[in-house]
Write a protein that binds this DNA or RNA. Structure first.
Length: 272
DNA sequence: AGTGCGACCCGAACGC
DNA sequence: TGCGTTCGGGTCGCAC
């Protein structure tokens, strides 16, 4: 489940492995991942190279000479680096081969991920990028900003935290963890969230995301030619996937409910 | 505009 | 070697 922290880890890892290597060819095995014209996609990538990798929210932005390749991993997208001669595994959908006989392989069990090629000058007007809200570690993320965005919203705060146009990068796991750390009930309507609660949301999202990034970082060394990137932050979860287990604060059992169709874990005693 | 929900996918977990 | 059903996770598109 790549959320912002895992995407950041992927970015850092790939930057060390694929920058400035010339691309020989592209093999598209499952084409629905790619939202651009397939021939154009191959043509642009061939004889090109990745100069840098940036990130906006959960979007990876591979910088080419005159284009950006946008890549969203959705739930299960992963990148592998392998020798070109290695057998193509099930779920490897896009293979980008470099001239040094290594591949960057996009692997996605559920085929939900997306890639899209855009011209550099179009980046700021690309809707997927443009509509990303402020990231947790953005120093301009303020309670004033959140109160403005929450105003009039009757949706549960949990649902609103998943809205990438408000805070960019939180997923279902972190949203639960942030609400627990902030002592806020997931079903509280966004319009009723106070300034003090916004401050707590900001503080805990920063702490949780930063810790998750540092934990993702610790697993980089396991990212070899045959392994994907997996973070270790799941060892530190306090509510998510802990239904029935004791709350780390009060020992009452963690509850699980559905909010906006999503599994949501919380402590009914600590989160009012 | 704000809100709700199915669709997209497929392996794992679950129920019987 | 059990088999059919449900679930999950991020985002989009459509209906109201």
């Amino acid at each position: 489940m790549p959320e912002l922290a895992e995407v950041e880890t992927v970015r850092n890892t790939l930057k060390e492995r694929i920058l400035n290597k010339e691309i020989k060819d592209v093999n598209i095995i499952y084409s629905k991942i790619i939202e651009s014209d397939l021939e154009e996609f191959k043509k642009v990538l061939r004889n090109n190279k990745f100069i840098d990798i940036k990130r906006k929210g959960k979007w990876l932005i591979f910088e080419l000479k005159d284009h950006y390749l946008l890549s969203h991993l959705r739930m299960e997208g992963k990148y592998f680096i392998k020798d070109t001669k290695e057998k193509i595994e099930k779920h490897e959908h896009i293979i980008i081969s470099f001239k040094d006989n290594t591949d960057l392989r996009y692997h996605d069990t559920r085929k939900f991920g997306r890639m899209k090629l855009i011209k550099k000058e179009d980046l700021d007007k690309t809707i997927e990028i443009q509509k990303q809200g402020k990231e947790p570690m953005d120093s301009t993320l303020s309670s004033k900003y959140l109160l403005e965005k929450f105003k009039g919203k009757r949706l549960p705060i949990k649902t609103v935290l998943l809205d990438q146009e408000i805070i960019s990068g939180l997923g279902n796991i972190y949203a639960d963890e942030v609400l627990f750390a902030s002592l806020i009930h997931p079903l509280k309507e966004a319009k009723d969230v106070t300034k003090e609660e916004c401050e707590r949301i900001i503080k805990s999202s920063k702490e949780i995301i930063e810790k998750a990034i540092s934990l993702g970082g610790t697993t980089i060394r396991s990212y070899t030619s045959s392994l994907g990137v997996t973070g270790h932050y799941q060892d530190y979860l306090k509510v998510h996937k802990r239904e029935g287990m004791p709350c780390v604060i009060c020992n009452n059992p963690i509850k699980r409910i559905k909010v906006g169709g999503r599994s949501t874990y919380y402590c009914e005693h600590c989160q009012k």
